Simulated assay, not measured.
Amino acid sequence: MDYLAHNIAINLGRIRKAKGMSLDVVAEQTGVSKSMLATIEDLTQAPSKDAYLVDVANLAPTKDVPGEYRVWTCFPIADNHIVEIYRIDIEPGGTYWSGGHGERTKEYLFVLAGALSIELAGGKSYDVAAGQSFRFSCEEAHTYRNLGDAMLKFTTFFVVHFVALPPLRGG
């Protein structure tokens, strides 16, 4: 890696972390995709561990709006460039709006407690209860709502689906 690219990668990660910003926030503010930002930062990180325990109780929230919601990044896209895992809690009556997560990205969510109402692009809504799972294409903005009277807790996975390219033919 050349000197300039190396310095950009180091500075991008340092500045983002110093400001307490997630890759989501930086991507929204810069217009650069999360996967590209993760790739740039990953160039300077040590190899990942084979096993890693995450306890949400010991994590600082990635996003925290009192009386509305809290989001924790359990495993960032920078870990493997394929999947990103979040834990989200939404207060009764609370709403959390999410931007799209990039082309060919699917979201898989698992409701742990409470009841989730999710509104996708085009206004189509789905209700997902505790113990249920839901999958959808998350290329466009979507909204999570807690219409119940108890805390809504769910885990969500964003998976980038790569398109297999045909092998190159020799000439």
Rank of each mutant, 00 (worst) to 15 (best):
D2W: 05
Y3A: 06
L4N: 04
H6P: 00
H6W: 14
I10T: 09
N11S: 11
R14W: 06
R16C: 01
K17D: 07
K17P: 05
K17H: 07
V25K: 10
A27V: 03
E28C: 08
E28Q: 14
S35R: 04
M36R: 05
M36A: 10
M36C: 03
L37W: 03
L37K: 00
A38D: 01
I40M: 06
T44Q: 02
A46R: 12
A46I: 07
K49I: 09
D50S: 10
Y52W: 12
V54N: 06
N58M: 09
P61C: 04
E68Y: 13
R70P: 00
T73L: 12
P76Y: 02
I77Y: 06
D79W: 05
N80G: 13
I85S: 08
R87I: 12
I88A: 06
G94K: 00
G99Y: 11
G100V: 05
L112T: 03
L116T: 04
L120R: 00
L120I: 08
A121F: 10
S125V: 14
A129R: 11
S137D: 15
T143E: 10
N146Y: 03
G148W: 08
G148R: 07
D149F: 11
V160K: 04
F162K: 03
V163A: 04
L165S: 06
G171D: 14
